[in-house]
């Protein structure tokens, strides 16, 4: 790949401020989507520890659950849930743009694809919720 073109004299080359993502709401929404992955990663790490603790027997697991019940961890999980929902919504919307769905000769409009994905997500979530409630 070629090197960046040498600056030409007389031209003004604008600089990108470090706060560029505060300039437009769409940029900020994009940054939030990126940041959401940090929270989701931490959540998954905690989940893995939880599974590991469960394998160590009931006492270890109970102690772990007690730690999780602290206000700090509850607050973290509330925030992580918010980010996870935001990430899922944007992800499904964007997937609908990327994935071309055809019916016969015509392309299904991305909005409809997204609507289908959201419906599927909703039904799946309800089913899981139902299963969990039935068991407890």
């Amino acid at each position: 790949m070629s090197a960046p073109p040498a600056p030409r004299p007389g031209l003004y080359y604008p600089k990108m401020p470090a706060t560029w993502w505060l300039r437009r709401p769409a940029y900020l929404r994009f940054m939030l989507r990126e940041v959401s992955s940090v929270f989701i990663a931490i959540f998954l790490a905690v989940l893995m520890v939880q599974v590991y603790r469960a394998g160590q027997g009931p006492e270890a697991y109970a102690a772990f659950l007690e730690r999780l019940a602290s206000p700090g961890w509850i607050a973290f999980h509330a925030v992580a849930l918010g980010f996870a929902l935001y990430h899922s919504v944007t992800w499904l919307k964007l997937t609908a743009v990327v994935q071309v769905v055809r019916l016969g000769e015509h392309q299904v409009p991305p909005r409809l694809v997204a609507a289908g994905a959201f419906a599927f997500w909703g039904i799946l979530s309800l089913a899981i919720l139902f299963a969990v409630l039935l068991r407890s």
Binding site: A26, F30, L94
Partner: peptide, 25 residues
């Protein structure tokens, strides 16, 4: 990184963001 603003501002409805993601696929 799929900011998506290219498609939002395009006056001709080209949707370059979709073209880019589909090229990734």
């Amino acid at each position: 990184t799929f900011v998506g603003e290219c498609s939002a501002v395009c006056p001709k409805g080209v949707d370059p963001a979709a073209a880019i993601q589909r090229s990734k696929v």
